[in-house]
Design a protein around this nucleic acid. Structure first.
Lengths: 247, 247
DNA sequence: CAGTGGTCTAGACCACGAA
DNA sequence: TCGTGGTCTAGACCACTGT
């Protein structure tokens, strides 16, 4: 009845959490091997591994096949601040992130076509931004602009991880974004994403659809962020229009 | 090297996914017991359980201790639409959700106090909204309003799961929200939350801080949503101020 | 009570990484 | 090559559910 009633592996996880917090191992340092820890706790290796699974999911421990388990560096969070896209000052680039971009000409697949509200097979430009810090990827942004809207080129450095550069290119091409809808969801990472982010933590997914004043979709972007290393910020300013309602 | 190279449990998971998609079991129907399935796949029970863990995390299967594994009903997503809070029309209540609220007078703990920018121990009103659909909880909203800002009472039905009613009470008390910052993160559920949401899927966390024109925090809210059953929407209208820049 | 999932064991073999 | 984590087995006992 009480969900805090712990199994063996949860007890071990708690103890390891305590030891890590107490500084028994420093950030980046290697833990004893699983066999060693299992023996210390007089538990079987599968049981001990269940405990480590919890710590790994919490972002406390990072596992490397063939090398060992390591205490993770706390590491700052990557922040996706939606307000920056709507303000006129370009986002101050986060200099701790290394950002790369790939540009491809492609034809709209059925899925992307329906999101962009163009016909399947229509030509478009696809951008893929990847940002990294330390040894792990911190964000992946896939961004699509139909040729019907504009034929854009390659963005210039410095690159924002979120595709701000494409916004600038759009503006330069005379295309103005009037509204954006951002949809945020969360799910467990696929095998590829687990490897990319080096973590089994949940993935934050942001889907951004931007339209011009006519309602035409001018950009669709998919952002993938590692949930234990990222956060998403939205700022809403309530429309206060000088009401005469002081009580 | 190829992350799609599958272990035994992943292969089994794929097969079960296929069988479920093909309709071998209907929504809500019970799967064969784990022992039975393990025997069918000539795998050990731990291996088979690893496969079921994947399906459960994906929201395809729901487990009940002592009863069995069941195919989950697809079920609609709960949508938290931030725009509704800033527009003047109150949100159309989602009639499929049952919403309850608890109201407590309390004193600010250290954590809440710093978020509300009041002194620890200050009096405040705490609201806890819980919304449910089917047999599972769909959202938990904890909301705090310092007495320094207003002493509010109990909201009236119909209740919104997101605390819109408290906004209305604030407005009625002459307190106007000028801006809100919403911070979205994701993490694995605690044991309590796993039980509440009946799912090990990630939890979407929304922290909302609302201020009046003077910058004073008038409301702080914490929203917890089951990641496999919820999504968060933000709409941004870009400030277009009649520029003279037509090319 | 019988049947179910939840946990644990003690060992085995494989895949990967570094020397 | 050797030490590491990744996976798997066959069986055991416990906790929960419904009869």
């Amino acid at each position: 009845m009480n969900p805090t009633m712990a199994g063996r592996y949860q007890t071990i996880a708690e103890d390891l959490r305590r030891l890590i917090a107490a500084g028994n191992w420093r950030a980046g340092e290697q833990l004893p091997s699983e066999a060693e820890l299992a023996s210390q706790y007089r538990a079987s290796r599968p049981t001990l591994r269940s405990a480590l699974d919890l710590l790994q999911a919490e972002g406390l421990v990072e596992k490397f096949h063939g090398r060992g388990n390591f205490v993770r560096r706390p590491g700052d969070r990557t922040v996706y601040d939606s307000a920056r896209h709507t303000s006129d000052r370009p986002s101050a680039p986060d200099s701790t992130l290394r950002v790369s971009v790939e540009v491809r000409r492609a034809k709209a697949s059925a899925g992307v076509a329906s999101l962009l509200q163009v016909q399947a097979g229509s030509p478009l430009t696809e951008y893929e931004y990847v940002s990294s810090a330390d040894t792990s990827v911190r964000s992946v942004t896939r961004l699509y602009v139909p040729h019907k809207v504009a034929r854009l080129g390659r963005p210039e450095a410095p690159l924002s991880p979120w595709g701000d550069n494409v916004r600038e290119l759009l503006t330069a091409a005379g295309v103005h974004v009037a509204s954006s809808v951002e949809r945020v969801t969360s799910r467990l990472p696929s095998a590829k994403e687990r490897e990319l982010f080096r973590s089994p933590a949940p993935v934050l997914v942001v889907e951004r659809t931007s339209r011009d004043v006519t309602g035409q979709v001018v950009e669709w972007a998919l952002l993938l962020l590692p949930g234990d290393r990222a956060e998403v910020l939205f700022t809403t300013r309530t429309h206060v229009v000088n009401r005469e309602e002081a009580g």
